[in-house]
Design a protein around this nucleic acid. Structure first.
Lengths: 166, 166
DNA sequence: TTTTGTTTTCAGAATATCCTGAAAATTATG
DNA sequence: CATAATTTTCAGGATATTCTGAAAACAAAA
């Protein structure tokens, strides 16, 4: 496969996977582009390469910085801002875990805690409470595990994988 | 909190979380409804409770069966079909892992394998190949780990959590 | 076979999400 | 301060996704 074909395919696949996971496709494509860029890029270069508008490029670069996946680089003597992606895969995954946990898992746990105050007075509400308790326990365990994962070192993560498949 | 309020909140939260994760909101709401239903329900009951159309109910119940999260129950002497959700949380999570792995992770790995045939002939393609290799290694490890998880027993999963937070 | 109850399909409508591009805001430079 | 370069915003347009409802298909019962 040619480099340019591979590059296009990589950007496309990364975007596809992201949109399956509820993440803006273009944001993921910008991320893919910066991941494989050997040097930091300007917003103009991103617009050009992905053929998207200035507003779109700006919005998604900013979102990627919010996620902690992309950083700004200022070059002395230049006014333009340059951007580059975090390349260490474990750090990338960790940042994604941190963000999704905060945005999605924690609100869900909060909602479940409130819901858990329902009294099991009827057969219907009794069953309801049981299901909610199960999910609560599960979510809390997942939350704790993710906290541990977030604190863990890269090699620890590798080791966990190896342990599990052994 | 009152039961009916809790029920509504649960269905709403479950749907919200699902749509964050790229899953149809209504599908998740149907799932939530069946999870907390003490008895199997008909499509009509689902339509009624969630205030959705027949077509929508049918489509999403069917999708949930494809995911292995909902099953059909036939009552003797009745023509209507009844549906109930798998309630064991570990089984639910496992089914979701199985499906998403097959639909998303495996195609990504396949794409990466193809992309990996790019030759690192220039500085740009050299860096590209490095990034792709990193992601490939990571994806393959994740894939193996998920295979192990899928085969694992429920209590093993609990133990893993406990091990990790220790 | 005909009737009746039930499920499935799918074109078009409704909605949610994303993108554009030009203007406004911001910031550096002369 | 005035000018120029750059970034940000956001209303309106474009696109993608989801939903409806009625008709078709199917299947049990008469």
């Amino acid at each position: 496969m040619e480099f340019l074909e591979g590059k296009a395919k990589f950007i496309e696949s990364w975007g596809k996977m992201a949109s399956d996971w509820g993440i803006n496709r273009t944001m993921a494509q910008v991320h893919a582009l910066l991941l494989i860029a050997p040097e930091a890029m300007t917003a103009d270069q991103v617009m050009e390469e992905l053929d998207i508008s200035r507003g779109n490029a700006n919005m998604n670069i900013r979102a990627l910085m919010d996620w902690g996946l992309v950083h700004k680089q200022l070059k002395s003597g230049e006014r333009k801002e340059y951007f580059f992606a975090e390349k260490d895969m474990w750090t990338v995954v960790r940042q994604i875990i941190i963000n999704r946990k905060k945005r999605e898992l924690e609100p869900m746990i909060k909602a479940l805690d409130e819901i858990a105050s329902v009294e099991p007075l009827t057969p219907e509400s009794e069953h309801f409470c049981e299901v909610v308790q199960d999910i609560r326990k599960f979510s809390n365990k997942a939350n704790q595990t993710l906290d541990t994962l977030i604190k863990a070192e890269s090699n620890w993560f590798t080791n966990m994988f190896l342990n599990m498949v052994r």
